[in-house]
C-alpha cells in the first residue's frame, strides 16, 4: 500500500515537535478533555480522528492557545513546543501563534484583497523589511499553497470572491506566510467538494516537507490518505495513538476498532 510506504519513510527522520502531558480541558464545569498524552513529530502529518464532540478539536485549539479566546475555558497539564511550556505565564500567545499556524473548518478569508490576506501575518509580525520582501513572502506562500498560478493576475481582487477550495488554499497560504513550524488544520476540507478536497489533501502531503502538520478530520479515509500518525479520541479521552497504518489495520483498542468499522461514531 502506498500510504504504508510513506509512513515508514516519514517516521524515520522525525523528532518530537509538540509534547502534551496530562492535558485536561474544562469548559466551565464540563470536563471536555481528560488526561491526554501525545507527542507530535516534526515534518509529519498527524491526524486526530473520532466521533463528533470527542474533544479532538478542543485539543487542537489547545496547541496554539486559541482556547484562550473562549470565556470559561481552563486548560491543565503541560504542552511543550520544542521543549518549552506554551502555557508558562511568561509566554505571549501572540508569539506562540506566529509559530503554530491554524486553518479552520470553513474558509475565513478577510474581506480584503488576496494580497492583503496573505500579507496580514507578515505585516503584524514585522517579518518583511520593505515592500519587495513582502511581495516575495506573499508569492512564496501562495506558490506553496498551490494557488499562485490561479490568482497571480488578480492579487488585488477580494479574497472572498474566490471559490471555496481556493479560499481554503488562500487561508493555508495566509497561515504559512508567518513561517510557522506547526500547522493546525481543523477539518480543512469538510466544507469543500471532492475535487477541492483532493487538492487540499495533495497540498497537505507537500507541506509535510517543511512543517509539522496536525489535522483534525471526520473522514477516516482522509486520515488514512494524508497522515503518518493517527490519534483516536473518544468521549474526551485519547484512546489510541500510533502509526496510521497500524491504527487502521490492527487497532489495539476495541473502541478504535468499532469506530473504524463503523459501529460507533
Amino acid at each position: 500500500m502506498n500510504t504504508m510506504q510513506k509512513v515508514e519513510n516519514a517516521l524515520a527522520d522525525s523528532e518530537i515537535k509538540i509534547g502534551a502531558r496530562g492535558v485536561q480541558v474544562y469548559y466551565g464545569t464540563n470536563h471536555a478533555l481528560k488526561d491526554v498524552d501525545v507527542d507530535i513529530a516534526d515534518k509529519t502529518v498527524t491526524a486526530f480522528i473520532g466521533p463528533s464532540g470527542c474533544g479532538k478539536s478542543t485539543f487542537l485549539r489547545c496547541l496554539n492557545r486559541m482556547n484562550d479566546t473562549i470565556v470559561g475555558c481552563r486548560v491543565e497539564g503541560q504542552i511543550t513546543l520544542d521543549g518549552e511550556d506554551i502555557y508558562a505565564p511568561t509566554v505571549d500567545p501572540v508569539q506562540l501563534r506566529a509559530r503554530v499556524g491554524m486553518v479552520f473548518q470553513k474558509p475565513n478569508p478577510f474581506p480584503k484583497s488576496i494580497f492583503e490576506n496573505v500579507a496580514y501575518g507578515p505585516r503584524i509580525h514585522g517579518l518583511a523589511r520593505g515592500r519587495a520582501e513582502l511581495d516575495e513572502i506573499v508569492e512564496k506562500s501562495l506558490r506553496r499553497a498551490a494557488l499562485w498560478d490561479e490568482v497571480k493576475d488578480r492579487l488585488t481582487a477580494p479574497g472572498t470572491g474566490l471559490s471555496g477550495g481556493q479560499q481554503q488554499r488562500l487561508c493555508i497560504a495566509r497561515a504559512i506566510a508567518t513561517a510557522p513550524e506547526v500547522l493546525l488544520m481543523d477539518e480543512p476540507a469538510s466544507a469543500l467538494d471532492p475535487i477541492a478536497t483532493a487538492q487540499i489533501e495533495e497540498l497537505i502531503d507537500e507541506l509535510r516537507s517543511a512543517f509539522s502538520v496536525v489535522i483534525v478530520t471526520h473522514s477516516m479515509q482522509q486520515a488514512a490518505r494524508v497522515s503518518q500518525k493517527t490519534a483516536f479520541f473518544h468521549l474526551g479521552s485519547l484512546v489510541e495513538f500510533g502509526e496510521t497504518g497500524q491504527i487502521f489495520t490492527n487497532p489495539q483498542d476495541p473502541r478504535t476498532e468499532s469506530y473504524i468499522t463503523g459501529r460507533i461514531g
Binding site: 479566546t69 508569539q95 495566509r174
Partner: peptide
C-alpha cells in the same frame, strides 16, 4: 463573523490589531 476574529488570532494578531485591521 467570529470566524474572521479566529482567523486573525490564529495568525498571532493581538486584539487591537484584529480590531483595527480586520
Amino acid at each position: 463573523p467570529q470566524s474572521l476574529r479566529d482567523g486573525s488570532y490564529a495568525l498571532g494578531a493581538t486584539r487591537s490589531e484584529t480590531v483595527r485591521r480586520v
